[in-house]
Simulated assay, not measured.
Amino acid sequence: MKILFVAPWLPAPMRPRSLTIMRLLAEQHEVRFLGLTKNSAEATRVEHLPVQEPPVLVPNPTVGSLARAAVSLGTGQSLQTGYANPKSLTDELRRIIAEWRPDAVHLNVFRTAHLVEECGDTPVIIDLDEFRSEYYEQLAETGPNAAWRMLGRVEQRRMGAREAELVRMRVPIILSAPALKGELPPNTFVVRSPYDYAPQPRQPQSRPTVLFVGRLSYEANVNGLMWFIRECWQQIRRAVPTARLRIVGEAPPKNIQALVGDDIELFANVPSVDPHYAASDVAIAPIFRGTGIQMKLIQSLAAEVPTVTTGLVAARAGVEDGVHVRTAEDPAGWIEATSALLANPAGARRLAAAGREWAVANHGTDAVRVQLATAYRSLGTSIPQQRT
């Protein structure tokens, strides 16, 4: 089967879902890649892509992206779509389809949803990851300021309308998590984010280490982390005086950089997060707004690190408080849960073992490979399932 994989970015270890799903497809099919890049330096980092033919990369500088997003305000189009919609991307998509004639086009996340109609008669499947309009609905209600709340109201309406249209069109949709309530819409398939982690030997640390991992350009990550530091961290330090917080993430803003000191470390733009999990005693995911399943949760559980998160994140994933993770909502709960895990290594290990068992069963490559094949079968049985 010939699959054209289209993404609004270059799949990379810091965006593991798109990269690992691409790898799973390339195991059995011929995959070519079409994507956007912000700059020439990023365009040189393609050696990890699982493709035989050179990827087709379309420049998408930040200035142009922001300009198109601003124009979208007046057109009724989602800002997310406008951000990733240079004309050259559509032109390249049409050219590759005409010349290569793929059996399917795999569109990655909502930023590529505007390309569905451009694929013509070629079968399309889109990995939305989540119905992202729900996040903007949350942002409209609980955003950190008036500007964010306004953005949430605008994007929720526009994005929600396009998501509903895709459902009506019966475009096969991939989501990373089951529905919290009720059934998924028709032609929608759960394909969890694949993540394999061979547990590494514990790296002894001189101090108990609490770990946060996440993209620090993402508003929900920054706000959750800042809340934890402001409301919880010093109380945890009083309970465990030698504890330190290690922050690992991409593109840390200045307010995160300013936190670095004796009890807070920052590792920016690391090549791999694995060594940091091996060196941590507790992982945290203080995310109060979001949809889908947090990759940081999957990673920490797969790495067998005891984890504290919010009830929202746990419910999305399907993990249970006191069984796979500890959950907390307010500062008192977060302080108690984190401190207790640091103070009770035996109990923390039991929790972590159950968490890893859940992660392997649901997010291991073998499990996700089956989920992905089920979604692709919806494109039609006439399409060959093996590379020829």
Score class of each variant (00 low, 15 high):
Asn221Trp: 01
Pro59Trp: 08
Pro194Trp: 07
Val116Glu: 07
Glu163Gly: 06
Ala41Val: 15
Asp321His: 15
Pro50Cys: 10
Thr37His: 11
Ala113Trp: 09
Val6Glu: 05
Gln138Leu: 10
Val360Glu: 12
Ala314Met: 06
Glu141Asp: 12
Pro194Lys: 10
Gly35His: 07
Thr81Cys: 10
Ala243Leu: 02
Gly249Tyr: 06
Asp196Ala: 12
Arg316Gln: 13
Val260Ile: 13
Leu211Thr: 07
Arg101Pro: 01
Gly355Val: 03
Phe288Trp: 09
Val370His: 11
Ile256Asp: 01
Leu225Trp: 01
Lys296Glu: 04
Glu183Thr: 12
Ser382Asp: 13
Glu155Ile: 06
Lys87Phe: 06
Met295Val: 13
Glu53Met: 09
Asp103Cys: 04
Thr81Leu: 14
Arg207Tyr: 10
Met226Trp: 00
Leu342Asn: 09
Ala354Gln: 15
Ala343Pro: 00
Gln52Glu: 15
Ala314Asn: 06
Gly380Lys: 03
Thr209Ser: 12
Val167Met: 10
His29Ala: 11
Leu180Glu: 14
Pro55Cys: 12
Ile173Lys: 02
Gly182Ser: 09
Asn223Phe: 10
Arg238Trp: 05
Asp121Thr: 15
Asn108Glu: 15
Leu312Gly: 12
Ser339Trp: 09
Pro253Ser: 12
Gln234Trp: 11
Thr44Met: 11
Gly224Ile: 05
Tyr197Leu: 14
Asn362Ala: 03
Ile173Leu: 15
Ile174Val: 15
Gly322Tyr: 08
Leu115Phe: 05
Pro345Asp: 09
Val167Phe: 06
Val124Tyr: 10
Ala67Phe: 09
Ile335His: 00
Asn362Phe: 02
Thr209His: 04
Gly143Glu: 02
Glu118Asp: 14
Glu47Leu: 07
Glu265Pro: 02
Ala104Gly: 14
Ser193Ala: 09
Asp196Trp: 02
Phe131Cys: 05
Ala147Thr: 04
Ser217Gly: 07
Thr122Gly: 08
Ala70Asp: 08
Gly143Pro: 07
Glu42Arg: 06
Ala43Gln: 03
Leu24Cys: 04
Asn187Val: 13
Arg149Pro: 00
Arg15Leu: 09
Val260Gln: 14
Pro286Thr: 03
Ala26Thr: 05
Arg149Leu: 05
His48Val: 14
Pro199His: 12
Gln52Lys: 13
